[in-house]
Structure formats: structure tokens, C-alpha cells
Nucleic acid binder design. Structure first.
Lengths: 193, 193
DNA sequence: CTAATATGCAAGTATTCACTTGCAGCAAGG
DNA sequence: CCTTGCTGCAAGTGAATACTTGCATATTAG
């Protein structure tokens, strides 16, 4: 991947955030990447090709992989906070917009498997974490897949909603949201008596 | 709104689900609505106009309004189940796809206020419900806006994720998800000791 | 120095798309 | 019967877009 090609990919992904796939023209891309339009087609087979090669790059998936959740302390509250925070600081409103751009019906089929890696990383890591916590005797027996799904849905839902509606829908800040949600989950997971 | 115009709107919204805004051509719409293409422009100013008039109709917002959550029993578990179920049975994968179609940058600005009515209905109703439950002495004092946001995000997140990735991401069914999530929330909200 | 490679530039092609226009038929109401 | 309004039909318009081509120039590697 030479530097010119990378510049073309980066420009394309940036434009995707702003305008979506169909509204991003190769002329726009050329301008933003500071190359001639025909150079694009010397480096890539098609417009679709650029996007597919882009989403294959970890950097264009917000650098979210299982390893970013490795830093656990085996304290439920601290760790759930870390999970939510790690995700939310990477999947910003901009990234949500990008991921919507990548779902355009013309390219959707090729991009979905890569987009899916992001939730997968969160979910798999969290399920493993709960199992380990259970072995350590720190939490009870649950359906950890459902549990992880609830926590991830709540995390994802929040970024998506704030990316869509800004503060029009809710004035709850990200910081507050994490605190209150984690408190709810920790309390929900703990054993009463 | 005569019958022909309504048929054009319905066809447009259906196509939006399948292909998104830009990929839906006026030719497609004409075919699906069984009218001539020029009839579309006799009834509507522009393609954008059709979509905007469509999203203004309650039926194209899944018939979600605050009233659908009125059927409460003042039992926390039953009521949270009702909230999640009422939403999820209306906002199906098809509706999620439609709402993504409506977010195309060309029309986004006009559709967002209408799309937002759906989460608003859920959130406002749920906050009022929590306040009433508190007055009845059934739940403790919380930040109800955060709490409602967490529950709604978890509900919305789940439909969106299953609409996007089918059962590739998780095998958890909607039924299971509701049960397990509600159990978690109820336990989390309840007061210990 | 020479040959290969990368890129710019300018012009062009074929297609698609939103939207328009002029005319004709038809049904309903007065 | 006659007007009015709705719709179809056929043809067209102008703009935009993905992608191509031929040639000139600059940089780099051997």
C-alpha cells in the first residue's frame, strides 16, 4: 500500500462519514486526496474497491479489537466502566456516521463482515470476562451471552443515539451515562439476600 | 391526500427500506406504485418531498407514540417487559432499515425531527412511569432520565444490531433478550437488604 | 545516462437520473 | 353535452457520474 493509495483511502473514508457512499463522488475523493481523478482508477479497480480496502484496515474500524479490553482489575464496577469507556472513546459520532455510510446497499454486502468485527470484539471479550469472574467466585451464574448483549446494546445504543440526535434527545452526558449504567448493571448482577 | 398520492408514498417508503434513498429512483417508485413517472411530479414537488410527507405519517414511524405504553400494571417487571415488547414488536428489522434510509445526507435534515419522535415517545413515557412508581413507594430515588436512557438504548441497540447482522452476531432471541434484560434491570433498580 | 514507474492534465464516453412538456383519453358532475 | 381534473404516454433535457485514454512530465532505480 503506497502513500498515494493510502491518501485516497483516507479521503474516501472521511467523505463517507460526511456524505455517505453514493453522494461521495470520485471527483470529491480526488480533490480531498490531492490526486488526479484518473490516478484513483490506476490504483483501484473501482470506487467500491477503495471502500472495501479501507474497511479492512483496523484504523478505519476505530482500532477496536479484543485486546483493548484486556486491562481488567477483577473489580466489576471498574471493569464494566473500562469496557464502556474504551468502546465509547473509539466509536465516536464520526465513526457511527462512517458505519452508516458503509451500510449503503451498493457495498453493504462487502462491508458488513468487517463492521461486525467491532461488536464481536466487545461481546466475546466480555463473555470471557464474566466466565473468569464466575470462576473467581465474584459473580453468580448467569446467561453471560445475554448479559453481555444487554450491556453492549446499551453502550452501542447510546453512541448511536447521540450521534443521530446530538443533545436533542437527551442531556445525559457520556460520563454520567457510563456511571449510572454501570451502577445499574453492577447492582443487577450482584446477589441479593 | 388522495389514493394515488398515498400509493406513491407507500411505494417510496417500501423502496427506501430495501435500497436506501439515493438508490431509489423515481422510475422504481412509479413502477411499484403503478403510476406513470410524470404523475409523481404532478403530485409532489420532488423526490425529497415524497419522503418528507411520508415520514410525517404515523404509520411510517411504526405507530410508536406515548400512548402505546399506557397499559401499565405498576409491577416493575411486567411493565418493563411491556415497554420493551411494545417497542420491539413495532420497530422491526424492516423499520430499522427504513430509518437508516431516511438518514441519507440529502434528506437527513428534514427527517431527523420525525425519526426522533420514536425514541422520545419511549423515553418520556418511561420517565413519567418511574416518577409515578417512586410516588407509589415502589422504587427508590434515581436519576430517571439516565435510567430510562439505559433501558431505551439497550432496547434500541438490540433491534438495530439484529437488523444489521441477523443471527450472525448473537443467537440470543428477542424473547430471551427481553426476559434477561428486564431481570437485570429489575434487580438493578431494587433496593438491597 | 537510461529505462521504468508514477502521476498530472485534458478530453471524452456511456449511462443514469430527476424532472419537464405537449397531447390525448377518460370519468364525473353540472 | 360540455367542462374540468386526473392520468397515461412518449419524448426529451440538462446535469452528474464512474470510468477511460493518450500524452507529457517528473522522479527513481540500475
Amino acid at each position: 500500500m503506497d502513500e498515494t493509495a493510502q491518501r485516497i483511502i483516507d479521503a474516501t473514508m472521511e467523505l463517507l462519514k460526511e456524505k455517505g457512499y453514493v453522494a461521495t463522488t470520485t471527483k470529491d475523493i480526488a480533490k480531498k486526496a490531492h490526486v488526479n481523478e484518473c490516478t484513483i482508477f490506476r490504483k483501484f479497480k473501482s470506487k467500491k474497491d477503495i471502500v472495501v480496502l479501507g474497511i479492512e484496515q483496523n484504523k478505519w474500524r476505530g482500532n477496536v479489537s479484543s485486546e483493548i479490553f484486556n486491562n481488567v482489575t477483577w473489580d466489576l464496577q471498574a471493569d464494566l466502566t473500562m469496557y464502556m469507556r474504551s468502546y465509547l472513546e473509539r466509536i465516536t459520532a464520526d465513526f457511527v456516521k462512517l458505519s452508516i455510510g458503509l451500510r449503503a446497499p451498493q457495498i453493504n454486502e462487502y462491508t458488513i463482515p468487517y463492521i461486525m468485527k467491532i461488536p464481536e470484539a466487545f461481546l466475546k471479550s466480555l463473555v470471557r470476562y464474566f466466565e473468569a469472574m464466575h470462576e473467581k467466585g465474584k459473580i453468580g451464574k448467569f446467561d453471560y451471552e445475554s448479559l453481555a448483549m444487554t450491556i453492549f446494546s446499551a453502550t452501542f445504543g447510546f453512541t448511536f443515539l447521540t450521534a443521530s440526535f446530538g443533545d436533542q434527545l437527551t442531556k445525559v452526558t457520556q460520563q454520567e451515562y457510563i456511571e449510572k449504567s454501570v451502577a445499574l448493571f453492577v447492582n443487577g448482577i450482584s446477589i441479593k439476600d
